[in-house]
Amino acid sequence: MLIGAHVDFEDPLAEAAARNADVVQFFLADPQGWKAPEARPDAAVLRDSAVQIFIHAPYVINLASTNNRIRIPSRKLLGQHAAAAATVGASGLIVHGGHVNKGEDVATGIENWRKALQQARDNGGLPVQVLIENTAGGDNACARRFDELARLWDAVGDFGVGFCLDTCHAHAGGEELLDIVDRVKGITGRIDLVHANGSRDGFDSGRDRHDNLTVKNSEPGMIDPELVAAVVRAAGAPAVVETPGGAQGQSADIAYLRAHQ
């Protein structure tokens, strides 16, 4: 079982070593910005490393948006990050499921997802697999509630996309963790990566605030770390902690997951 962490992009392999991580995830550019990623001088070293690499796309990407000034740049930025992710040997590019605005039909956002992937296919395809990630909040999200996720997958599943399951997002989004792997696989047929995160907020809060697994939270409604470990075991996919505390906090979370596999 490959277990690792989301780390700073400056020197991902050093960060992996500091955490005893088998896998790392990082950004290639400002996660809140629209700039294309720059070429990395360590690309060959990253490609040749034994550490498995995943790239997280910027948060600003919203392929579901009905706003042309967001949707069209999102498609462009997706292609740029996919190309850059390929140069570092990434196993996948994680992209949030996106949303439409209040009062708009989520079906429109789902169709926009399909159009984005069709456009990419028509232009020769993306060089790395897109992993759609479930999200924590919003009543107009395409991948918060699993009934919407099922509609999204019906539209995009044939484009070869994968799925990234975030335990904090599921918990905050109102989806129980107890049987979640079976429910996700029943929809998507796959889980390609787990974001193994605790939550600082209660069930169905809609709030995306990650917490460590090694801090046992006695407040009602918080995630039991043993449930997160069970999700990782059942998923049979690489797992990444996106938890606070830097190398020390994440190392403890990684060790916890390994001890419970």
Rank of each mutant, 00 (worst) to 15 (best):
F146Y: 11
F163Y: 15
F146V: 02
V181S: 10
N134K: 05
C164D: 09
R183A: 10
I132Y: 10
A150R: 13
N134T: 08
V181T: 07
I180N: 02
F159N: 13
A150T: 08
G160M: 14
F159V: 08
R145A: 12
V181H: 05
C142R: 02
A170C: 09
A150H: 08
E148C: 02
C164M: 12
L152W: 10
R145P: 02
D182C: 04
G137N: 08
R144S: 03
L152S: 07
L131P: 07
H169I: 06
E176H: 14
D154V: 10
L177M: 12
G137S: 14
V181I: 10
G162E: 12
R145S: 13
D139W: 03
E175T: 14
A141I: 01
L131E: 07
F163Q: 01
F146G: 00
C168L: 04
A141P: 02
L177Y: 09
L165T: 00
T135S: 07
G173R: 00
G160K: 14
V161E: 12
L177K: 10
H171S: 07
R183M: 04
D154R: 12
N134C: 07
E133K: 07
G138H: 05
I132E: 07
I132T: 05
L149T: 03
L131N: 11
A172K: 00
N134R: 06
N140E: 12
L177Q: 11
R145G: 14
L165R: 01
C164V: 11
H169S: 03
I132D: 05
A150Y: 07
H169P: 03
G173L: 01
A136M: 04
D154N: 13
T135H: 02
D182T: 12
E133R: 08
R183I: 05
H171F: 05
E175G: 01
A136G: 01
A143W: 05
G138E: 04
V184Q: 00
T135E: 06
F159M: 15
A172C: 06
L178T: 14
